[in-house]
Design a protein around this nucleic acid. Structure first.
Lengths: 220, 220
DNA sequence: CGGGATCCGTTACGATACTG
DNA sequence: CAGTATCGTAACGGATCCCG
């Protein structure tokens, strides 16, 4: 049950970080948790085929490191979420996503079991791009999976689950989003060909588009 | 001789990055190369006890990924260096260093075999802090190991080896630098108690101090 | 049925020894 | 100095089992 988790144990901040998050799967677990609290099963499907014992080991290790916490929600569902310290891996996750866009896309790659990864790449990017002029809530429907994007008072996030009272609702699918993130298509093409938009609060769609296109520029 | 290098192969930029740099030791090798070209032996000592076969495997894999390149210098010395693509891991390395400062320092940790790691943490930070008002070259002597810091026209770097015509020479040692990076002592204390400074070009020490203290603020 | 723990074959790691 | 070869061991990966 208990893995030993090899460590470098070197007097260097970089290797210290890797001692906590450098094991296989660990950064991907943190990635998915940046989309909000998740159950064991959510993580297992999002990580396409991680062995349950490994997921369990990693969650325990992350809890020991103080990066995540486990708690029971109503009805006794166990949920894992980032601690305040764990949230601080956001910029690190963002740089991982950004660098991935620089690497050639491999011939065939599997789709993850859920789309939290999209929410995360987007979420880490809009946090950098948001300004005080952005104030809205949006629902993103991606291949039937719902996420909510919130921008308020200079801070922003994307989380799993629909918004309660969205100003705008954007419907799209996974492949064009990834193509956009990988720089294979342009923003203009993405918005015009692959997106359907519902506006509940007229005027807010301008803020929404503005934040989204600023975010995409963060990946350059 | 040839390791298989497990990969996630998921359609996600984050996991794609990890497919290239996520193996054990790989990010630390890149770290050391951010201090400039290095020989096999330099890397081996900097990584305190990495097995030579692993170092060899990782270097081959990184070369295949296009992140590093191998070339012969004069006198037939083999050198490894970052490619243009590999240089782009800079921000990622910086975030790894920054997050390490947030984690509690473990009770006992070994010193790396050389101090390239210091040059790298510093170097990634000054790249973010430098402005057009900084224009100088400095030599940093850290426990007898020489590095050169260059700031010119809005860009800056730190590399292994002394500067040829330094405007200032700073002499200090490893432990206080790490204490500073880990937030255990203040800048003012660091400069006043643990640093000796030689000024060759009067006036340049102000620019030098300014860039250094701006850099430290990047870690907050 | 979700949330894991146990078992076991396989693979990468780590140390040492050895060679050009 | 710059690696390659060998080999024991620890971590991974997949399947199965267990418990509320």
């Amino acid at each position: 049950m208990k893995q030993k988790t090899r460590s470098y144990n070197l007097l260097c901040p970089i290797s210290r970080t890797l001692d906590h998050v450098g094991d296989r799967w660990t950064l991907l677990i943190l990635r998915d948790l940046h989309a909000g609290p998740a159950r064991f099963k959510d993580l297992q499907t999002g990580l396409t085929g991680i062995a349950s014992n490994l997921l369990s080991d990693r969650l325990n290790a992350l809890e020991s490191s103080g990066l995540i916490q486990k708690y029971e929600s109503e009805f006794g569902v166990s949920l894992y979420s980032l601690t305040e310290l764990g949230e601080e891996t956001g910029p690190l996750i963002f740089e991982l996503a950004r660098f991935g866009g620089r690497m050639p896309r491999p011939a065939k790659s599997r789709r993850p079991g859920n789309l939290r990864t999209v929410a995360v790449s987007l979420g880490t990017a809009i946090k950098r791009a948001v300004g005080p002029e952005h104030d809205f809530e949006a629902t993103l429907m991606i291949d039937g999976e719902a996420f909510r994007m919130t921008a308020r008072k200079g801070s922003a996030e994307v989380r799993a689950g629909a918004a309660e009272a969205p100003d705008v609702v954007m419907t799209t699918s996974y492949d064009p989003i990834m193509a956009l993130a990988d720089g294979e298509i342009e923003q203009s093409q993405f918005f015009s060909e692959h997106v359907a938009l519902d506006v509940n609060t007229p005027g807010k769609e301008a803020e929404f588009f503005d934040l989204l296109s600023r975010s995409m520029r963060e990946f350059d």
